[in-house]
Write a protein that binds this DNA or RNA. Structure first.
Length: 436
DNA sequence: ACCCGTTTTCCTGCTT
DNA sequence: GAAGCAGGAAAACGGG
């Protein structure tokens, strides 16, 4: 058995090609050698801070948009950068360095090593393959890492994903597990080429970081570990992790709307009828959500003053400060930027989950798709939150709504304030489509 | 670089 | 008068 150590200095070195590794020989029954990347958590979630351009933002404050983002991630899967997929403990030999497989990274990785994003992509792949109605998915059940997934019994999977889709997932998972079953003790040593590739990945991942800057951020060690194959061995239990997550503080100073969503998030958004949903799902962005521990409960970002400043027509340019993290986010997302949820989809999703929307909107006529804004400004705020636009108002939102008339996504409802109707070009709201 | 689709912003006039 | 509606105009912005 060999233990390989890549020291922290490796990443402080301005010349990463000098990565060194040492071998120590020990007798061990360990089944594998894992490359563990400890990325400091402040780095992981600080970008979220920057993204949240709201007056006041708490980690738990934007639940609806976060949940919707999760839903988006499922509907429009976004390929993740290698390193961000590696925040748990992937086996180096299992990393798809080419990333050319259209199936996604998960296909090249032992399911036990999957990140939550990998699990999402895997589920998304099967949704596509089986033409399963993704709107029936409970996103909370999709938000688990590979270790937890592998530790989940068939019965539980069936319960989570339904008989047919659950069966399919279970079958495929078993196949994938079997594929990697004999491979765990192999590739314990990094070859020079693998080290080169690792260097490249690190460089790609932190293009704005150079040599010494990487040091404080990355602390990479290679550890010898046994991969648990049993439920009881699973250290990072999905259920433990989420049920132990702290509840949002009540005095965070966010608006009442958000509070109402905080209090309503115990259930699943996409599948509100699911009984044992206990996930908080407060991970705003799956890419940065691989944190094994809770983070501080409140983060406040002050908004710039001067909102009443007179300005010209049209949309002002977005602020371009903080190039560092911003650039990282932009470059990472630009590869395959997801098609964001459209406004009408956002509205629809609020409507089809009435127990989650806390009286923001209601159906006037469910069959005909007629609905009404009950808290118009609150909905606008929420929409703005989703679009990282703290100055969204109902007036602006309604203008966008009116543009839908022409495209027949919405139809006019004359004489009734705050009332709209879904048009023939909208989908996903009908009882036949949602199942409830 | 340019086009296109989808907003976002601002505005005027009208209706409830 | 306030809130909302209607829709023109211009601009932002991401994707192709």
């Amino acid at each position: 058995m060999q233990t390989l150590q890549v020291h922290q200095e490796t990443f402080q070195n301005t010349e990463p090609r000098r990565i060194t590794h040492t071998h120590t020989h020990t007798h061990s029954q360990a089944t594998g050698l894992l490359l563990t990347q400890h990325v400091h958590w402040d780095f992981i979630w600080r970008p979220n801070l920057h993204l949240a351009n709201t007056t006041e933002f708490t980690m738990a404050s934007s639940e609806l948009s976060l949940i919707l983002n999760n839903a988006n991630a499922n509907l429009y899967p976004e390929p993740q950068h290698h390193l961000l997929c590696m925040t748990r403990t992937p086996h180096l030999s299992e990393i798809n360095f080419n990333n050319s497989n259209t199936m996604g990274t998960w296909d090249q990785v032992n399911p036990q090593m999957w990140t939550r994003q990998n699990v999402l992509e895997w589920i998304g792949f099967h949704v596509e393959e089986s033409r399963f109605d993704a709107s029936l998915l409970n996103m909370n059940y999709c938000n688990m890492d590979g270790l937890t997934l592998c530790a989940t019994s068939k019965e539980t999977l069936l319960g989570m994903f339904g008989q047919r889709f659950g069966e399919r997932l279970h079958q495929n998972l078993e196949n994938l597990k079997a594929r990697y079953a004999n491979d765990l003790s192999e590739n314990a040593v990094l070859s020079e080429s693998e080290l080169d590739i690792l260097e490249n990945i690190l460089q790609d991942s932190f293009p704005f970081m150079h040599g010494p800057n990487l040091g404080p951020l990355l602390e990479t060690v290679v550890v010898q570990t046994t991969i648990p194959t049993d439920n009881s061995e699973s250290k990072y239990s999905y259920f433990d992790e989420y049920t132990n997550q702290q509840t949002p503080e009540s005095d965070h100073g966010y608006d009442s709307l958000t509070e109402s969503f905080q209090s309503s998030q115990a259930g699943s958004f996409l599948n509100p009828s699911s009984p044992e949903s206990s996930s908080s799902s407060s991970d705003s962005d799956p890419e940065y959500s691989e944190k094994p521990f809770s983070v501080s409960s409140k983060i406040t970002v002050k908004q710039e003053p001067g909102k009443n400043q007179k300005r010209g027509r049209g949309r002002p340019p977005k602020p371009r400060d903080n190039e560092g993290y911003e650039h990282f986010i932009q470059s990472k997302k630009s590869k395959h930027a997801p098609r964001g949820t459209h406004l009408w989809e956002f509205i629809r999703d609020i409507l089809i989950h009435p127990e989650q929307n806390q009286g923001l909107m209601k159906w006037e006529d469910r069959r005909d798709g007629i609905f009404k804004f009950l808290k118009s400004e609150a909905v606008a705020q929420l929409w703005g939150q989703k679009k990282k636009n703290s100055s969204m108002t109902y007036e602006k939102l309604s203008r966008a709504m009116r543009y839908y008339y022409k495209r027949e996504i919405l139809e006019r409802v004359d004489g009734r304030r705050l009332v709209y109707k879904f048009g023939k070009n909208s989908t996903g709201w009908r009882v036949e489509e949602t199942g409830y």
